[in-house]
Simulated assay, not measured.
Amino acid sequence: MSTYEERLNRPSPIRSLQLGDLKLSYVPDGVVRLKPYGWLPAATERDWEDNAAFLDDGGNLVATIGGLLVEHGERALMIDVGVGPVSLPDDPGNPLIGALRGGDLLDSLAKLGRRPGDIEAVAFTHLHIDHVGWGYHPAPDNDRPAFTGADYLFSEPEWSQRHLSTAHGTTEEMLATLATRARTVTNGEEIFPGVRLLLTPGHTIGHASYTIESGGRRLIAFGDALHSAVQIRHPEWSAGSDLDSVESAVHRRRLVQELQEPNTLGFGVHFADVAFGRVDTTADGPTWHPVA
């Protein structure tokens, strides 16, 4: 059996859990290495000595890339759809990210018994390319994106100010493709049985988390409000890519508090092989504990 420490620095396979009437599954697409001193610039060398378990043999944070499949009987929703068929080597001049690889999401979905046509909607946390990839990339052997039958759901501020995403690599061509299926939703709106949008801006102007409730339990899929389980203990550590590091820290602290409430779980799409977890209160502070 793998230890918690081993799981912190390796990519995740498909993992699923049951939440009342809903089945939730992490759908892998790929992995990216995050450079710790650039990605979490408030963390010091001593901090990383104390949290070395979160770093791989190359000294990087392992961040999974993928999406969350939410199934209610025959109905299915995706939250984020990875980066798509992209492979990039490490650029030593990039202070934030190292090597990146994607492209597995459609195969992962097939292993879960689902086709892209089964997905009635894709709810996006935000417009960065590692979350919208299969929303605009053509499907294999096709000139159209895979999720042609799905609505693309964005928070209203994220979509209305989508031009801001171009600073992070999202192109006008990508946005034009997404626009053909885009629909905006508001804070608190139910988009699928038990699934509601929760605005958590800071990483982007309209970053959305999603609360999922069924059977007396709740799960918060918090997207890029948190990138690593190390931030559960250190919500003051904002990402180098955050649009507003002060606002993102405010929402991170609130999320960590919410995740300590009874019957509450979390989903971290970039959380290496500990994507599903709960936050336990310990003598050392709040701690992420995997549950799947």
Rank of each mutant, 00 (worst) to 15 (best):
E49F: 06
L197S: 04
L17K: 03
G268F: 07
L175R: 02
P92L: 08
P138T: 01
Y210K: 04
H128I: 14
E45S: 14
S245N: 07
R75Y: 02
G67K: 08
R252K: 15
S165V: 01
P89A: 10
D244Y: 08
Q18R: 14
G133L: 03
T166E: 15
K23E: 15
H203D: 11
R252G: 09
S165W: 00
S214D: 07
L265M: 15
E45F: 09
R181Q: 15
D107T: 15
L100F: 00
V27R: 02
G194Y: 05
R233V: 01
D47G: 14
N60V: 04
S228Y: 08
L24T: 07
Y210D: 04
P140L: 06
D244R: 08
P36V: 10
T44M: 08
Y26L: 05
L197W: 01
T171D: 02
G149Q: 13
S241I: 14
V27D: 01
H72L: 03
E74S: 13
P262M: 04
L197A: 11
D151A: 15
F271R: 00
L265W: 14
L69I: 02
F267W: 11
L109Y: 05
L112P: 05
H251S: 09
N9K: 15
A272G: 03
R114K: 13
I79P: 09
E173K: 10
G215R: 00
L112V: 06
R253L: 05
G215H: 00
T64C: 12
V274S: 11
D224P: 12
R33F: 10
E45T: 14
V269E: 11
T282L: 02
E71S: 13
R218K: 15
N142H: 13
D57V: 13
D21R: 14
G169E: 12
A139T: 09
N51M: 07
G277V: 06
V122Y: 02
Q161G: 14
E49S: 12
D56W: 07
A179N: 13
E6H: 09
A146V: 03
F147G: 03
L109H: 07
A275N: 15
